[in-house]
Amino acid sequence: MSDDNGSGIDVDEYDDVWVFIEEHAGEVMPVSWELLEEGRTLAEKLGDELVALVIGEDVDEIAEEALARGADRVLVADDPVFEPYRADPYGEQFRAMVEAYKPSIALIGGTHTGRDFAGRVAVPAHAGLTADVTEIDVDDDGLLQARRPAFGGDVLATILCEEHRPQMATIRPGVFEAAEPTGEADGEIVAADVVVEEADCISEVLEREVGDTADITEAERIVAVGHGVEGDLEPARELAEALDAELAASRAAVDEGWIDGARQVGQTGKTVRPDLYVAVGISGAIQHLEGMNKSGTVIAINNDPNAPIFEHADYGIVGDLFEVCPDLADRLEGDLQEVVQ
C-alpha cells in the first residue's frame, strides 16, 4: 500500500467525482443540476467518471434525468426511510456508500439540507469538508482547490484536503450554471444497498409545511426588499411589476417573516447575478453584498445618504421608498406605454 502520508488513508484508492442530487417530494433542487454540470468539468480534467447520487423514495425519474444531464453512472438508494429528508438516515446511507465506492471528490449543494447532513458523512469517514464553496478547480496533481468566502466575504480562502478522502465540499446555490439535458443517456443506473432502517432512526418529522419555492437565481431583474420596507411589500411589488422583476430580500426582511426564505440573497441565502438589481430599504451589509455583487447594474433606494449600499450601487437615490417606488413604477409604465404606442 502506498499509504505514507500518516493519515492512514491511501488517496490513490479513491477516484470519481460524485454529485449529490437533492430532492424533496420529487422536486430536485436547482443547485444539484448546477453541480452536475460543474462536476463534469472536473471529471473531464481528471479523466474520472462523473457519478450522481440519488437518495429518496420512488426516484427512478430523477435518476434518468441525471443520466440525461451527463452522469456516467447514477447510484440510487431508494427506500421509504428517506422520505421526507432526515439527517441521520441520509448521513448514514451516504457514509456507507462512500465507504463502499471510495469517491475522490463529493460535491453537495450548500442548502440547509446539504449543510445539515454533510458532516454526518465527513466526520465518520474522516473526510475533509469545505463549507459554502463559490469556486472549484483541480490542480495539476488532481487535488481539489475549493475556494470559499470567509469573514463575511472580505476574504476568499482556498481550502485543500491533501491527505484525506473524499474531498467533500458544500457549494453555494446559484454560483454555477446548470446545462440543459442533452438527451443522450448512455450511462448506467446502479441500485445501492440500503443500510438504514426506520427502527434505528433517532428523529421523526411530525409536520411539514410547504412554502415558497421560487428560484430567484435565474432571474434577469430583481427588486430586493430590506428591513426598511417595514412589512409593507406593496411599493416594491409595484416596482417589480413595472420592471417585470422577481422579488427578493435581505435576511432581515426574511427573519421578520415578511417574505419567504427561498428569496433571501446573501451569504446564508442565494447568489444571484441578474442584469438589474434594485435594493429597496437595504443597508448593504457585507453578508448581503456577497450574494448580489455579480449583478449587472445595481440601483439603491434608501433614505439614509450614508447607507453603505450607495457605495456598492451604480445609481442611487436618497429618498423614502414609500414615495420613490410607486413614483418610479408610474414613470416606467408611462415609458412603456410610449414604446408601445
Binding site: L129, G153, A157, T158, I159, C161, E163, H312, A313
Partner: peptide
C-alpha cells in the same frame, strides 16, 4: 483533513 492553502482579500466590485 482540511487546511487553508491561501487567503486573498476580496476587492469590492467597482461601481459608479
Amino acid at each position: 483533513p482540511t487546511s487553508v492553502g491561501g487567503m486573498e482579500t476580496v476587492d469590492p466590485v467597482d461601481r459608479r
